[in-house]
Simulated scan of single mutants.
Amino acid sequence: MAADFSVVLDELDTTLRSIEAVLDVDRLRREVAELEQQASAPDLWNDVEAAQALTSKLSYLQGDLRRVEELRSRLDDVGLLHEMAVEESDEATAAEAERELASLRQAIDELEVRTLLSGEYDSREALVTIRSEAGGVDAADFAEMLMRMYLRWAERHRYPVELYDVSYAEEAGIKSATFAVKQPYAYGTLSVEQGTHRLVRISPFDNQGRRQTSFAGVEVLPVVEQTDHVDIPENEIRIDVFRSSGPGGQSVNTTDSAVRITHLPTGIVVSCQNEKSQIQNRAAAMRVLQARLLARRQEEQRAEMDALRGEGSSWGNQMRSYVLHPYQMVKDLRTEQETGNTSAVLDGDIDPFIEAGIRWRRQQESVPAS
Protein backbone atom coordinates (compact mmCIF):
# COMPACT_ATOMS: atom_id res chain seq x y z
CA MET A 1 0.00 0.00 0.00
CA ALA A 2 2.89 2.36 0.90
CA ALA A 3 4.49 1.63 -2.48
CA ASP A 4 1.21 2.46 -4.29
CA PHE A 5 0.92 5.69 -2.31
CA SER A 6 4.48 6.70 -3.26
CA VAL A 7 3.86 5.93 -6.96
CA VAL A 8 0.71 8.11 -7.03
CA LEU A 9 2.50 10.85 -5.06
CA ASP A 10 5.36 10.87 -7.59
CA GLU A 11 2.90 10.97 -10.51
CA LEU A 12 1.05 13.93 -8.99
CA ASP A 13 4.34 15.70 -8.25
CA THR A 14 5.38 15.29 -11.92
CA THR A 15 2.01 16.58 -13.15
CA LEU A 16 2.11 19.56 -10.78
CA ARG A 17 5.67 20.44 -11.87
CA SER A 18 4.44 20.40 -15.48
CA ILE A 19 1.54 22.70 -14.55
CA GLU A 20 3.92 25.05 -12.68
CA ALA A 21 6.14 25.19 -15.78
CA VAL A 22 3.21 25.90 -18.14
CA LEU A 23 1.77 28.59 -15.87
CA ASP A 24 5.32 29.94 -15.29
CA VAL A 25 4.73 30.63 -11.59
CA ASP A 26 7.52 33.23 -11.30
CA ARG A 27 6.08 35.19 -14.25
CA LEU A 28 2.60 34.79 -12.75
CA ARG A 29 3.80 36.33 -9.45
CA ARG A 30 5.35 39.28 -11.33
CA GLU A 31 2.17 39.80 -13.38
CA VAL A 32 -0.03 39.72 -10.25
CA ALA A 33 2.27 42.26 -8.54
CA GLU A 34 2.12 44.58 -11.59
CA LEU A 35 -1.69 44.35 -11.80
CA GLU A 36 -2.03 44.95 -8.04
CA GLN A 37 0.03 48.12 -8.48
CA GLN A 38 -2.17 49.25 -11.39
CA ALA A 39 -5.33 48.42 -9.39
CA SER A 40 -4.21 50.70 -6.56
CA ALA A 41 -4.04 53.76 -8.85
CA PRO A 42 -6.34 56.55 -7.54
CA ASP A 43 -7.78 57.27 -11.01
CA LEU A 44 -8.48 53.59 -11.79
CA TRP A 45 -12.28 53.93 -11.88
CA ASN A 46 -12.28 56.96 -14.19
CA ASP A 47 -12.64 54.38 -16.97
CA VAL A 48 -15.14 51.90 -15.50
CA GLU A 49 -14.92 49.33 -18.32
CA ALA A 50 -11.10 49.24 -18.26
CA ALA A 51 -11.13 49.04 -14.44
CA GLN A 52 -13.54 46.11 -14.47
CA ALA A 53 -11.38 44.28 -17.05
CA LEU A 54 -8.22 44.87 -14.98
CA THR A 55 -9.74 43.79 -11.65
CA SER A 56 -11.34 40.74 -13.29
CA LYS A 57 -7.98 39.67 -14.77
CA LEU A 58 -6.22 40.32 -11.45
CA SER A 59 -8.77 38.25 -9.52
CA TYR A 60 -8.41 35.37 -12.00
CA LEU A 61 -4.58 35.36 -11.92
CA GLN A 62 -4.56 35.63 -8.13
CA GLY A 63 -6.83 32.56 -8.08
CA ASP A 64 -4.47 30.65 -10.40
CA LEU A 65 -1.45 31.54 -8.27
CA ARG A 66 -3.23 30.69 -5.02
CA ARG A 67 -4.43 27.33 -6.39
CA VAL A 68 -1.01 26.19 -7.61
CA GLU A 69 0.75 27.34 -4.40
CA GLU A 70 -1.85 25.64 -2.19
CA LEU A 71 -1.59 22.40 -4.21
CA ARG A 72 2.22 22.40 -3.87
CA SER A 73 1.92 22.95 -0.10
CA ARG A 74 -0.73 20.21 0.27
CA LEU A 75 1.32 17.76 -1.81
CA ASP A 76 4.38 18.32 0.42
CA ASP A 77 2.23 17.96 3.56
CA VAL A 78 0.50 14.74 2.46
CA GLY A 79 3.90 13.09 1.83
CA LEU A 80 5.02 13.95 5.37
CA LEU A 81 1.66 12.81 6.79
CA HIS A 82 1.99 9.42 5.08
CA GLU A 83 5.60 8.96 6.26
CA MET A 84 4.50 9.68 9.82
CA ALA A 85 1.61 7.21 9.55
CA VAL A 86 3.95 4.44 8.29
CA GLU A 87 6.59 5.08 10.98
CA GLU A 88 4.00 5.00 13.78
CA SER A 89 1.76 2.29 12.18
CA ASP A 90 -1.16 4.69 12.61
CA GLU A 91 -4.04 3.40 10.46
CA ALA A 92 -6.27 6.43 11.07
CA THR A 93 -3.57 8.84 9.89
CA ALA A 94 -2.80 6.58 6.92
CA ALA A 95 -6.50 6.64 5.91
CA GLU A 96 -6.52 10.44 6.24
CA ALA A 97 -3.46 10.65 3.96
CA GLU A 98 -5.19 8.40 1.37
CA ARG A 99 -8.28 10.64 1.37
CA GLU A 100 -6.15 13.77 0.97
CA LEU A 101 -4.22 12.16 -1.89
CA ALA A 102 -7.47 11.34 -3.72
CA SER A 103 -8.66 14.91 -3.21
CA LEU A 104 -5.33 16.24 -4.52
CA ARG A 105 -5.52 14.06 -7.61
CA GLN A 106 -8.91 15.57 -8.53
CA ALA A 107 -7.76 19.15 -7.87
CA ILE A 108 -4.53 18.71 -9.89
CA ASP A 109 -6.46 17.10 -12.77
CA GLU A 110 -8.81 20.10 -12.85
CA LEU A 111 -5.93 22.59 -12.87
CA GLU A 112 -4.18 20.60 -15.60
CA VAL A 113 -7.25 21.08 -17.85
CA ARG A 114 -6.92 24.86 -17.38
CA THR A 115 -3.32 24.70 -18.69
CA LEU A 116 -4.60 23.09 -21.92
CA LEU A 117 -6.36 26.36 -22.80
CA SER A 118 -3.59 27.94 -24.84
CA GLY A 119 -5.43 28.94 -28.04
CA GLU A 120 -5.22 32.47 -29.42
CA TYR A 121 -8.56 33.55 -27.93
CA ASP A 122 -8.92 31.01 -25.07
CA SER A 123 -8.29 33.59 -22.34
CA ARG A 124 -11.24 35.74 -23.52
CA GLU A 125 -14.70 36.10 -22.08
CA ALA A 126 -17.36 34.10 -23.97
CA LEU A 127 -20.35 35.15 -26.04
CA VAL A 128 -22.88 32.28 -26.13
CA THR A 129 -25.85 32.03 -28.50
CA ILE A 130 -28.42 29.21 -28.28
CA ARG A 131 -30.92 28.61 -31.10
CA SER A 132 -33.79 26.17 -31.44
CA GLU A 133 -33.43 23.99 -34.53
CA ALA A 134 -35.49 21.04 -35.87
CA GLY A 135 -38.32 19.84 -33.63
CA GLY A 136 -40.88 22.64 -33.40
CA VAL A 137 -42.11 23.61 -29.96
CA ASP A 138 -40.01 20.84 -28.33
CA ALA A 139 -36.86 22.36 -29.88
CA ALA A 140 -37.78 25.80 -28.52
CA ASP A 141 -38.35 24.29 -25.08
CA PHE A 142 -35.02 22.42 -25.34
CA ALA A 143 -33.21 25.65 -26.28
CA GLU A 144 -34.57 27.24 -23.09
CA MET A 145 -33.45 24.18 -21.08
CA LEU A 146 -29.92 24.60 -22.49
CA MET A 147 -29.91 28.32 -21.69
CA ARG A 148 -30.85 27.53 -18.09
CA MET A 149 -28.15 24.80 -17.97
CA TYR A 150 -25.38 27.22 -18.96
CA LEU A 151 -26.66 30.02 -16.71
CA ARG A 152 -26.76 27.57 -13.77
CA TRP A 153 -23.21 26.41 -14.66
CA ALA A 154 -22.00 30.02 -14.55
CA GLU A 155 -23.88 30.60 -11.29
CA ARG A 156 -22.22 27.51 -9.72
CA HIS A 157 -18.81 29.01 -10.56
CA ARG A 158 -19.88 32.55 -9.60
CA TYR A 159 -19.09 33.80 -13.10
CA PRO A 160 -20.88 37.06 -13.98
CA VAL A 161 -23.33 36.78 -16.89
CA GLU A 162 -24.81 39.56 -19.03
CA LEU A 163 -27.95 38.63 -20.95
CA TYR A 164 -28.12 40.49 -24.28
CA ASP A 165 -31.16 39.13 -26.08
CA VAL A 166 -33.90 36.51 -25.71
CA SER A 167 -36.37 35.82 -28.52
CA TYR A 168 -39.32 33.90 -27.08
CA ALA A 169 -41.22 31.29 -29.10
CA GLU A 170 -45.00 31.50 -29.52
CA GLU A 171 -46.10 28.44 -27.51
CA ALA A 172 -43.19 27.72 -25.15
CA GLY A 173 -39.43 28.07 -24.89
CA ILE A 174 -37.18 30.36 -26.93
CA LYS A 175 -36.20 30.81 -30.56
CA SER A 176 -32.78 32.12 -29.53
CA ALA A 177 -30.81 33.75 -26.71
CA THR A 178 -27.44 35.49 -26.51
CA PHE A 179 -25.48 36.15 -23.33
CA ALA A 180 -21.89 36.90 -22.29
CA VAL A 181 -20.00 34.96 -19.61
CA LYS A 182 -17.75 37.69 -18.27
CA GLN A 183 -14.89 35.63 -16.88
CA PRO A 184 -11.32 35.18 -18.17
CA TYR A 185 -10.92 31.86 -20.05
CA ALA A 186 -14.70 31.47 -20.39
CA TYR A 187 -14.29 31.23 -24.18
CA GLY A 188 -11.59 28.54 -24.04
CA THR A 189 -13.65 26.62 -21.50
CA LEU A 190 -17.04 26.83 -23.21
CA SER A 191 -15.86 26.63 -26.83
CA VAL A 192 -15.98 22.81 -26.63
CA GLU A 193 -19.76 23.13 -26.08
CA GLN A 194 -20.29 24.49 -29.59
CA GLY A 195 -22.36 22.34 -31.92
CA THR A 196 -25.76 20.68 -32.18
CA HIS A 197 -27.33 19.24 -29.02
CA ARG A 198 -30.05 16.55 -29.35
CA LEU A 199 -32.92 15.81 -26.96
CA VAL A 200 -34.99 12.60 -26.92
CA ARG A 201 -38.02 12.49 -24.60
CA ILE A 202 -41.78 12.04 -24.34
CA SER A 203 -43.03 15.38 -25.60
CA PRO A 204 -45.00 17.34 -22.97
CA PHE A 205 -46.62 19.16 -25.91
CA ASP A 206 -47.94 16.02 -27.66
CA ASN A 207 -51.40 15.01 -26.39
CA GLN A 208 -50.74 11.42 -27.51
CA GLY A 209 -47.58 11.21 -25.38
CA ARG A 210 -45.27 10.25 -28.24
CA ARG A 211 -41.49 10.27 -28.13
CA GLN A 212 -39.98 13.33 -29.81
CA THR A 213 -36.44 14.11 -30.97
CA SER A 214 -35.50 17.78 -31.13
CA PHE A 215 -32.35 19.80 -31.69
CA ALA A 216 -30.79 23.05 -30.50
CA GLY A 217 -27.57 24.73 -31.63
CA VAL A 218 -24.94 26.28 -29.37
CA GLU A 219 -22.53 28.90 -30.73
CA VAL A 220 -19.60 30.11 -28.58
CA LEU A 221 -17.52 33.14 -29.65
CA PRO A 222 -14.66 35.06 -28.01
CA VAL A 223 -15.60 38.55 -26.87
CA VAL A 224 -13.88 41.11 -29.09
CA GLU A 225 -11.14 43.29 -27.61
CA GLN A 226 -9.70 46.57 -28.93
CA THR A 227 -6.61 44.78 -30.26
CA ASP A 228 -8.75 42.73 -32.70
CA HIS A 229 -9.29 45.64 -35.13
CA VAL A 230 -12.80 44.59 -36.22
CA ASP A 231 -13.79 47.81 -37.95
CA ILE A 232 -17.37 48.13 -39.20
CA PRO A 233 -18.01 51.14 -41.46
CA GLU A 234 -21.36 52.88 -40.79
CA ASN A 235 -22.40 52.44 -44.45
CA GLU A 236 -22.16 48.63 -44.07
CA ILE A 237 -24.82 48.37 -41.37
CA ARG A 238 -28.57 49.02 -41.10
CA ILE A 239 -29.94 49.77 -37.63
CA ASP A 240 -33.59 49.21 -36.76
CA VAL A 241 -35.20 50.00 -33.41
CA PHE A 242 -38.27 48.27 -32.03
CA ARG A 243 -40.15 47.62 -28.81
CA SER A 244 -38.75 44.88 -26.54
CA SER A 245 -41.00 41.86 -26.13
CA GLY A 246 -41.22 39.11 -23.55
CA PRO A 247 -42.90 35.68 -23.38
CA GLY A 248 -46.12 35.51 -25.38
CA GLY A 249 -45.29 38.67 -27.30
CA GLN A 250 -45.99 40.97 -24.35
CA SER A 251 -44.24 44.36 -24.37
CA VAL A 252 -41.45 44.62 -21.83
CA ASN A 253 -41.17 48.40 -21.93
CA THR A 254 -43.09 51.17 -23.60
CA THR A 255 -40.30 52.72 -25.67
CA ASP A 256 -38.58 51.61 -28.87
CA SER A 257 -35.32 50.76 -27.07
CA ALA A 258 -34.51 47.36 -28.61
CA VAL A 259 -31.95 47.45 -31.43
CA ARG A 260 -31.45 45.20 -34.45
CA ILE A 261 -28.28 45.59 -36.55
CA THR A 262 -27.94 44.07 -40.03
CA HIS A 263 -24.44 43.78 -41.49
CA LEU A 264 -25.17 44.31 -45.18
CA PRO A 265 -22.10 42.64 -46.77
CA THR A 266 -22.57 39.34 -44.89
CA GLY A 267 -26.29 39.40 -44.00
CA ILE A 268 -25.47 38.79 -40.30
CA VAL A 269 -28.30 40.07 -38.07
CA VAL A 270 -27.94 40.67 -34.32
CA SER A 271 -30.30 42.22 -31.81
CA CYS A 272 -30.22 43.32 -28.20
CA GLN A 273 -33.20 44.24 -26.03
CA ASN A 274 -32.02 43.60 -22.49
CA GLU A 275 -30.78 47.10 -21.62
CA LYS A 276 -33.09 49.99 -20.71
CA SER A 277 -31.72 52.49 -23.23
CA GLN A 278 -31.36 52.36 -26.99
CA ILE A 279 -27.71 53.53 -26.71
CA GLN A 280 -26.82 50.63 -24.37
CA ASN A 281 -28.60 48.11 -26.60
CA ARG A 282 -26.83 49.44 -29.68
CA ALA A 283 -23.41 49.14 -27.96
CA ALA A 284 -24.17 45.55 -26.85
CA ALA A 285 -25.43 44.59 -30.32
CA MET A 286 -22.27 46.02 -31.91
CA ARG A 287 -20.15 43.88 -29.54
CA VAL A 288 -22.06 40.77 -30.66
CA LEU A 289 -21.69 41.73 -34.34
CA GLN A 290 -17.94 42.30 -33.94
CA ALA A 291 -17.60 38.87 -32.31
CA ARG A 292 -19.51 37.23 -35.17
CA LEU A 293 -17.32 38.96 -37.77
CA LEU A 294 -14.16 37.97 -35.87
CA ALA A 295 -15.37 34.35 -35.82
CA ARG A 296 -16.10 34.55 -39.55
CA ARG A 297 -12.57 35.79 -40.17
CA GLN A 298 -11.20 32.89 -38.06
CA GLU A 299 -13.31 30.37 -40.03
CA GLU A 300 -12.04 31.73 -43.34
CA GLN A 301 -8.43 31.49 -42.14
CA ARG A 302 -9.01 27.91 -40.89
CA ALA A 303 -10.65 26.95 -44.20
CA GLU A 304 -7.64 28.28 -46.08
CA MET A 305 -5.26 26.29 -43.87
CA ASP A 306 -7.41 23.14 -44.20
CA ALA A 307 -7.46 23.55 -47.99
CA LEU A 308 -3.68 23.84 -48.02
CA ARG A 309 -3.38 20.71 -45.89
CA GLY A 310 -6.15 18.90 -47.77
CA GLU A 311 -8.14 18.38 -44.58
CA GLY A 312 -11.82 18.51 -43.77
CA SER A 313 -13.66 18.81 -40.47
CA SER A 314 -12.59 16.12 -38.04
CA TRP A 315 -16.05 15.50 -36.54
CA GLY A 316 -19.72 16.07 -37.28
CA ASN A 317 -21.68 19.00 -35.94
CA GLN A 318 -23.86 16.92 -33.59
CA MET A 319 -21.96 16.69 -30.34
CA ARG A 320 -24.18 15.61 -27.41
CA SER A 321 -27.37 13.63 -26.81
CA TYR A 322 -29.73 14.09 -23.85
CA VAL A 323 -32.01 11.05 -23.60
CA LEU A 324 -34.87 11.31 -21.08
CA HIS A 325 -36.92 8.38 -22.46
CA PRO A 326 -36.93 5.33 -22.62
CA TYR A 327 -33.85 5.58 -20.34
CA GLN A 328 -31.91 8.46 -18.77
CA MET A 329 -28.52 9.34 -20.23
CA VAL A 330 -26.45 12.29 -21.39
CA LYS A 331 -23.64 11.28 -23.74
CA ASP A 332 -20.99 13.28 -25.60
CA LEU A 333 -20.56 11.83 -29.07
CA ARG A 334 -16.91 12.93 -29.39
CA THR A 335 -15.43 12.02 -26.02
CA GLU A 336 -17.78 9.15 -25.02
CA GLN A 337 -18.25 10.96 -21.66
CA GLU A 338 -21.66 9.99 -20.27
CA THR A 339 -23.83 9.99 -17.17
CA GLY A 340 -27.25 8.70 -16.16
CA ASN A 341 -27.89 11.73 -13.94
CA THR A 342 -29.65 13.86 -16.56
CA SER A 343 -31.28 16.22 -14.04
CA ALA A 344 -27.87 17.20 -12.58
CA VAL A 345 -26.49 17.95 -16.07
CA LEU A 346 -29.52 20.06 -17.02
CA ASP A 347 -29.07 21.88 -13.69
CA GLY A 348 -25.58 22.98 -14.76
CA ASP A 349 -23.34 20.11 -13.62
CA ILE A 350 -21.43 19.95 -16.92
CA ASP A 351 -17.79 20.29 -15.80
CA PRO A 352 -16.94 16.60 -16.50
CA PHE A 353 -18.20 17.05 -20.09
CA ILE A 354 -16.30 20.33 -20.54
CA GLU A 355 -13.05 18.88 -19.14
CA ALA A 356 -13.33 15.77 -21.33
CA GLY A 357 -14.00 18.03 -24.33
CA ILE A 358 -10.92 20.16 -23.65
CA ARG A 359 -8.70 17.06 -23.32
CA TRP A 360 -10.25 15.57 -26.50
CA ARG A 361 -9.62 18.78 -28.45
CA ARG A 362 -5.98 18.86 -27.37
CA GLN A 363 -5.58 15.23 -28.53
CA GLN A 364 -7.13 16.12 -31.90
CA GLU A 365 -4.75 19.04 -32.30
CA SER A 366 -1.73 16.86 -31.53
CA VAL A 367 -2.65 14.14 -34.06
CA PRO A 368 -0.30 14.56 -37.06
CA ALA A 369 -1.94 15.14 -40.46
CA SER A 370 -1.87 12.03 -42.62
Rank of each mutant, 00 (worst) to 15 (best):
R17G: 10
A3S: 14
P233F: 05
A291D: 06
V113L: 09
E91F: 10
L80S: 14
V68Q: 02
R114T: 11
V223C: 14
A2F: 12
W315S: 15
T254C: 14
T254Q: 15
D347H: 03
I261T: 05
A21H: 14
R198T: 06
E98P: 05
Q273P: 03
A186M: 06
D351H: 04
R17K: 14
Y187I: 08
L111K: 00
E69S: 07
N281H: 10
E91T: 15
L117S: 02
L151R: 03
S167A: 14
M145F: 06
H263E: 08
Y168T: 09
E34C: 01
N274P: 04
A344Q: 12
F179T: 08
R156S: 13
L146R: 02
P247T: 15
P184W: 01
L9C: 12
I130Y: 00
R158W: 07
S366A: 15
H263W: 10
Q52S: 07
V128P: 01
V200Q: 06
A177N: 05
V137I: 15
G340V: 13
A41V: 10
N235M: 13
H82G: 06
T189W: 05
A33C: 10
D138G: 04
E100A: 08
A94I: 08
I202N: 08
D43T: 10
L81W: 08
A186G: 02
E193N: 09
T255V: 15
I279T: 13
E311P: 00
V181R: 00
R260G: 05
T227V: 14
E170S: 11
Q364C: 13
E20G: 01
E100G: 05
I130R: 02
V323C: 07
S73D: 11
G248V: 06
R148P: 02
T255P: 06
Y150C: 07
D240K: 03
S56D: 02
S123Q: 09
E31N: 11
D109V: 01
Q37I: 12
V48Q: 12
S103H: 10
F242N: 07
A33I: 04
T262D: 04
E133P: 00
A95R: 13
E365L: 14
S123D: 14
Q337F: 09
V224D: 02
G79P: 04
D141C: 09
E355A: 15
A85E: 04
E83Y: 10
D228Q: 09
Y150I: 11
L35G: 00
L199D: 00
S176M: 11
A369P: 05
E275M: 14
R320V: 09
R361L: 13
S118T: 15
T227F: 11
G136L: 03
V220N: 01
L324D: 05
V32E: 00
D26P: 02
P204R: 03
A97F: 08
G63I: 03
K182M: 14
L324W: 11
D141N: 10
R158I: 11
T335V: 05
